[in-house]
């Protein structure tokens, strides 16, 4: 099964025109500056140019009788949709699961979804990658990574080897 999107050039141009209208309106609510240089003046210049180019695209498409048809197959939509959903779920759950547990779960599920069936390899990569990144970002670069709310697993990991601390 496939979904057909006809006249995508025109749809894109209309969406840009709507965006321009909204931003132009919102920019009008900003306080006035000196002369023509208030906070809203520049966004208005930008969206005016966007509107001009969108109108050009729309006119060209109408004039040329656009016949562009984007055919998107259902499996493609499903694959992309599931991957986006997995990433969104990963980000949503990270504050609760913590970086380590959340990343292990995300990698295991996504690698399996991507077609790998060797469970031992999936487990190995899913565990090793978060640990390496935990040391690289959490310990070496001092980035505060989210911690599991129930069990702070990162505290169970041994500290970064002294040699790396010395280099940094």
């Amino acid at each position: 099964m496939a979904i057909e999107i006809k006249r995508s050039e025109q749809i894109g141009a209309i969406l840009f025109l709507i965006l321009s209208g909204i931003v132009y309106y919102l920019s009008g609510t900003f306080p006035e500056g000196q002369g023509q240089t208030g906070p809203g003046s520049y966004p208005r210049v930008v969206v005016t140019l966007i509107a001009v180019f969108a109108l050009f695209q729309l006119a060209r498409s109408l004039y040329a009788g656009e016949s562009t048809v984007h055919e998107i197959r259902a499996p493609t939509i499903k694959r992309v949709g599931i991957v986006v959903a997995l990433v969104v779920a990963y980000v949503i759950t990270m504050p609760y699961l913590g970086f380590l547990v959340g990343t292990v779960a995300f990698l295991a599920v996504t690698i399996h979804y991507s077609g790998e069936r060797n469970l031992r390899q999936i487990a190995l990569v899913s565990v090793l990658v978060p640990i390496v990144l935990h040391y690289a970002f959490g310990a070496f670069l001092r980035v505060r990574l989210p911690e599991n709310v129930l069990l702070p697993i990162s505290r169970l990991l041994p500290p970064l080897p002294l040699v790396i601390g010395g280099i940094s």
């Binding site: 991957v83 990433v87 990963y90 990343t103 995300f106 990698l107 996504t110 690698i111 991507s114 790998e116 990569v125 990658v129 978060p130 990144l133």
Partner: peptide, 8 residues
């Protein structure tokens, strides 16, 4: 393996 790791 590559793309899930890149997403992370």
């Amino acid at each position: 393996y590559l793309w899930p790791t890149i997403f992370v």
